[in-house]
Amino acid sequence: MTPISLSPRRRAWQRFRRHRLGYWSLILFVGLFALSLCAELLCNDKPLVVRYQGQWYFPLVQTYPETVFGGDFPTPADYLDPFLRQRFAEPGNFALYPPNHYSFNTLNYFAPSPNPAPPSVENWLGTDDRGRDVLARLIYGFRLSVVFGLVLTVIGVVIGVITGALMGYFGGRFDLVSQRLIEIWSSMPELYLIIIFASIFDPSLWLLVVLLSAFGWMGLSDYVRAEFYRNRTLEYVRAARALGLGNRQIMGRHILPNSMTPVITFLPFRMSASILALTSLDFLGLGVPPTVPSLGELLAQGKGNLDAWWISLSTFAVLVITLLLLTFMGEALRDALDTRKADAP
């Protein structure tokens, strides 16, 4: 016996940590995602703090008209305007800008070169064909893709686990009927449905989430069903029944924790599949509206402007790194949950 008692979850975590590549991928991925969550502080066309004529202003949280800073019009201030910049540069005033002066939809009306513009000091990764900063769009696009993947994965896991658990636990006729229903449902042409819906409704992120998660849970429910089928005949389940536990307690407390291995193993792969789905739909123009920052839309622009190499190359790099990190994490998870591997420290 070991002196310290570790739960199976703790031991799996230790095995995961021993998988160096996967462990560092996780750290890097979480770090990048955390950075992208603060995208407003990194890439924004509004200064973080402004001191103007002895007063503090916070453009990030409040919209000020141009007249506040001595402009002529009551429209919202454009902080990239050289006139405003000049006012901020006067003694006693100052403006603290984020590292990158552009948000994902910022159009620089004062840009010196035509669009798409190559990388420069002002636009670190250049601009796209509408003059929007590529770096800002990449960071916001990465955040959107990951959040989208997370949401889709969570919804898919919840629906898949519930249906799979019910089918596997109750079995019999219920299982037979639901399996046939799933077969019918899964034979619907997903892509056509998305195209049809995209033309009926305004394309939006939520429409995509609903459509993709309506079909995304089926693969997982098969695995969970098989695990429940196997586990419900084991003796600890019979012992629980003999103790007088109800179905819900047996499913939740006894079988579910022992059936989570395929679910957890597939998480990173499901996420990368979701991200890829969003990217390809956007690339085809069936996804989110063009104002939303998206990696697929950038790829399409890269294809449309082959000479603007900075668009396609940087987008490609972001996609590859994201998917690669997820795959490495998935491999490490699979190893960590493989109980046949030795537990030696």
């Binding site: 008692s5 600890y236 019979r238 629980a240 103790l243 007088g244 307690q249 022992n258």
Partner: peptide, 26 residues
Amino acid sequence: VVFQDPYGSLSPRMTIAEIVGEGLAL
């Protein structure tokens, strides 16, 4: 009831306190 297989009759993801205390809690 006590079953034959001592490896299969205890849920591997519960502590001994949870396993033994489950019936009492119920």
